[in-house]
């Protein structure tokens, strides 16, 4: 059995590196992006192999799905002549020098990894000791929303900043999204699938406290439904002018800060969840985070601001 698993690990690793090389070497940008999506999906298998199911879920939804959709959307914006761009060559000497430099850096990092001790507890033992008081059975969720809630607070902050940046960069003039009517089959698909996706997002959210899953997975899955609605023309691109959407964007951040400050009234430190309330607070925070993450990712996909001052022109190229 171990021999089969080793063969699997070898095939997986070779596939990953070959896909990465393919992404960067393929002449057609469209193919390159498709390979990148396959790379993300293959990464999620690697996460599963390393017992990182939480990461596998996020990678499949975000790394492969959403990043791929973002890239394809941008490629669509960049007009078709951008599709085949011959990469200017650095000349054999230049390429060799670049490869040597990258290879040397790799060897140095590889040597450092090689020197790792075989056994290393890290912070795992401390997480295990305090897991019972975290309010979550899934250690990854416990770390995210309790032990290192600072990280998550800052992360949701990063998401909000990203929305502001994207919004500032691109008033959505010109082509919004494909104006092609979805057709009966796609419309039927969306009609059946989106409600189920909403349910699955709720399920991932619920599961997150004691098994792989949580706000990030749920938010990413919900965002996928939003993107599907967006590209099939079932909903207009988010109108950031609308108070509801602005509210949804900052909902997670505000709730996180509010909870962090509120617990201080009980004599706790900032973001130090009281043991008795931890489970409830985590579930509440995760629910609000899910909504914010989903709306942020959809806005990032839509890739720009639509407002009264810059009404989107019709999709005619």
């Amino acid at each position: 059995m171990t021999a089969i698993l080793w063969a699997f690990d070898v095939v997986l690793a070779v596939t990953l590196v070959a896909l990465a090389a393919g992404v960067l070497a393929t002449a057609s940008l469209f193919r390159s992006i498709v390979l990148f999506i396959v790379f993300g999906l293959t990464m999620s298998i690697a996460w599963a192999r390393l017992d990182a199911v939480d990461l596998g879920l996020v990678e499949a939804a975000v790394g492969a799905g959403l990043t791929g959709a973002l890239l394809l959307n941008t490629l669509g914006h960049m007009r078709s002549q951008a599709e085949f761009t011959p990469e200017p060559s650095h000349g054999p000497g230049g390429r060799l020098a670049l490869a040597l430099a990258a290879g040397t850096a790799g060897l140095a990092i590889g040597a450092a990894v090689w020197a790792w001790p075989d056994a290393f507890a890290g912070l795992g033992d401390r997480v295990d000791t305090h897991l019972a008081e975290s309010g979550a059975q899934n250690p990854v969720t416990a770390v995210l929303l309790n032990f290192r809630a600072y990280d998550t607070l800052l992360e949701i902050g990063v998401l909000v900043v990203a929305v502001v940046a994207v919004w500032a960069l691109s008033p959505m003039r010109g082509r919004v999204l494909d104006a092609d009517p979805p057709g009966l089959v796609l419309a039927g698909f969306v009609h059946l699938l989106v409600p189920v996706v909403v349910l699955v997002a709720g399920y991932l959210l619920w599961m997150g406290t004691d098994a792989p899953g949580g706000a990030f997975q749920a938010g990413a899955v919900l965002a996928a439904a939003g993107v599907l609605l967006l590209i099939t023309g079932r909903v207009a691109p988010p109108q950031l002018q609308a108070i509801v959407e602005r509210g949804a964007v900052v909902l997670g951040l505000v709730a996180f800060l509010a909870v962090g400050v509120a617990v201080m009234a009980g004599g706790h430190a900032f973001l130090e969840l009281p043991d008795a309330w931890a489970t409830t607070l985590i579930l509440l925070l995760e629910s609000l985070l899910t909504i914010s993450i989903a709306i942020v990712l959809v806005i990032l996909f839509a890739g720009g601001r639509t407002d009264a001052a810059h009404p989107p022109e019709d999709a005619a190229p």
């Binding site: 973002l70 295990d128 990854v140 992360e155 940046a165 990712l297 990032l300 996909f301």
Partner: peptide, 30 residues
């Protein structure tokens, strides 16, 4: 068992990476 702290960091990292990618793509489009 696994050490959940790097897992949580990488999970955060993946989401930050997608937002950074989105901002980079917005720059590219602009």
């Amino acid at each position: 068992a696994i050490d959940p702290v790097p897992h949580a960091m990488v999970l955060t990292g993946i989401v930050v990476a997608v937002s950074a990618t989105a901002v980079a793509l917005a720059f590219a489009r602009r």
